[in-house]
């Protein structure tokens, strides 16, 4: 694969980031009775983090093809 030798490490870092953001206790911080435009905060947070993770994965994987 013609990708940076760092790709694997970056992906593992993304994995660890996801593990931290999507679990107790960080997740607990967002599990409040607060709504964003009517939507519960935790729902917005989860889908936000999810989208962010996918974006990072895409960025890392597609980044180096030279």
């Amino acid at each position: 694969m013609k990708r940076s030798g760092m790709t694997g490490e970056r992906l593992v870092a993304t994995f660890l980031l996801g593990c931290v953001l999507l679990n107790y206790p960080v997740l607990f911080l967002f599990a409040r009775r607060v709504t964003v435009a009517g939507i519960p905060l935790v729902y917005v947070y989860l889908f936000g983090v999810w989208t962010l993770l996918i974006a990072i994965l895409a960025l890392v994987v597609e980044r180096k093809r030279s």
């Binding site: 694997g8 992906l11 593992v12 994995f15 996801g18 935790v42 729902y43 999810w50 993770l53």
Partner: peptide, 20 residues
């Protein structure tokens, strides 16, 4: 409620480890 999500968050995290 959001308890259905871990079944799909898990694969997302796992995908990051697929490289290895």
């Amino acid at each position: 409620g959001i308890g259905f999500l871990p079944v799909y968050l898990g694969p997302t995290l796992a995908a990051a480890l697929w490289w290895y």
